[in-house]
Design a protein around this nucleic acid. Sequence first.
DNA 1: GCCGCGTCTGCGAAATCCGCAATCTGCGAC
DNA 2: GTCGCAGATTGCGGATTTCGCAGACGCGGC
Lengths: 172, 172
Amino acid sequence: MHSEVVASRSADQRDSSRESRNGTPQLDAVSLAIIQQLQEDGRRPYAAIGKAVGLSEAAVRQRVQKLLDQGVMQIVAVTDPLTVGFRRQAMVGVNVEGDVESIADALTAMSEVEYVVMTAGSFDILAEIVCEDDDHLLDVINKRIRALPGVRSTESFVYLKLKKQTYMWGTR
Amino acid sequence: MHSEVVASRSADQRDSSRESRNGTPQLDAVSLAIIQQLQEDGRRPYAAIGKAVGLSEAAVRQRVQKLLDQGVMQIVAVTDPLTVGFRRQAMVGVNVEGDVESIADALTAMSEVEYVVMTAGSFDILAEIVCEDDDHLLDVINKRIRALPGVRSTESFVYLKLKKQTYMWGTR
DNA sequence: GCCGCGTCTGCGAAATCCGCAATCTGCGAC
DNA sequence: GTCGCAGATTGCGGATTTCGCAGACGCGGC
């Protein structure tokens, strides 16, 4: 915890909420440092974070609350689905004819779908699916995803072993 | 607490820590409920969780600590990498000749690699990569991943738009 | 200058976290 | 059956943290 930031805060960067082109709030160095602290431990006390980033406890608290309200970050428990009773997971590559985004929205609406991203490459969309068993997985892929109008084809990659899953962006 | 290894081998271990085939602890309904609470809000007070799941504050605290120690779950801040300054992400499918696991381990060791999973299907491994820009991404894929001995081929899917990213397993 | 807005700080009260000792509960050994 | 053990749970102080708010500060607009 010797990640002293000691930002030259008094200088100019007191706008932690400047907006960039797409409306996403731009983060300053201090907020980034706060996020890093919470990526290491989501329950770290505000006072400890404040000491690390050079802010008072109350200021850290306000910034964290704002980051949560803005949806920039969320503090949650994450697990390996396998240990929580979901025995089948798969990544599904989807090819679409027509409007890709509307298909992506339809996938997003499915509760079994954990992750949806539009990509460049031989798939238009990648979607991660979390299911309880093989029947459930088969049902989602064949009856629900392939049934969507505009889905040209799909390819499935059933998970055998999860090797790594980190949440340390920005910590490098 | 000098928690000695105990090593009480599969003797009794009732409930919340019975081991399944692969050594992963099996979770009972109460621990599952606790995880669900923390998936909604990683900073929810132990007393509030206890009220929701029917345990005392101290019992919840003890179980949460155990879940963290066992690595069953972690409580962290998660963000959209794009808002934190990482502009290029990609999923890379890898085909391997020889030992798949050792390649997966090598990928796991790379800090730019956020997610590694071994799969059944036309790829042996899927790895998610988070980079700062195109040059960085190109470098990781071409110079580092393809250079690994045993990597037969790779296929990249550059992210265009992240549509969904949830952490609500078990909350359905 | 004056005012407004957003952020930071300090501080007291309330709530929470932490550690520990006592108690309870299964379950195998005898 | 009883005994003993080990993990789980509870209750309870004391330390710590969270919370809300009033005041101060910096900065730009007028």
